[in-house]
C-alpha cells in the first residue's frame, strides 16, 4: 500500500495493547478490532526462539514446495 493511498482511504485500525486506545477509536466511530494480545510463547525466550526456528523452517518449506 503506497503511503499516499492511505490518505484517500477510510482509516481502519487493529489495536494491540492498551484497550483505552481502542475505546477512544470506537467513540469516534472508527472501525477497529482489539487484539487480545498476550506475550508470545508465554514470554519464554527459549520457547520463542524455538518457535521462530520452526516458523523459518515451515516458511522455507512453503517456498520450496
Amino acid at each position: 500500500m503506497a503511503l499516499n493511498d492511505l490518505f484517500t482511504q477510510e482509516l481502519k485500525v487493529i489495536n494491540m495493547g492498551l484497550e483505552s486506545f481502542h475505546d477512544e477509536l470506537k467513540s469516534q466511530h472508527v472501525q477497529t478490532v482489539q487484539v487480545a494480545w498476550k506475550p508470545r510463547a508465554g514470554g519464554s525466550q527459549k520457547m520463542l526462539s524455538l518457535l521462530n526456528k520452526l516458523k523459518k523452517v515451515s516458511s522455507s518449506k512453503e517456498k520450496a514446495g
Partner: peptide
C-alpha cells in the same frame, strides 16, 4: 494480528502499545 486481519480484512493501520 493474523486473526484480527480475518475479522477486519481491509484494516490499513495497526496501533501497538504492548
Amino acid at each position: 494480528l493474523k486473526s484480527a486481519l480475518r475479522q477486519l480484512p481491509d484494516a490499513n493501520l495497526v496501533q501497538i502499545s504492548i
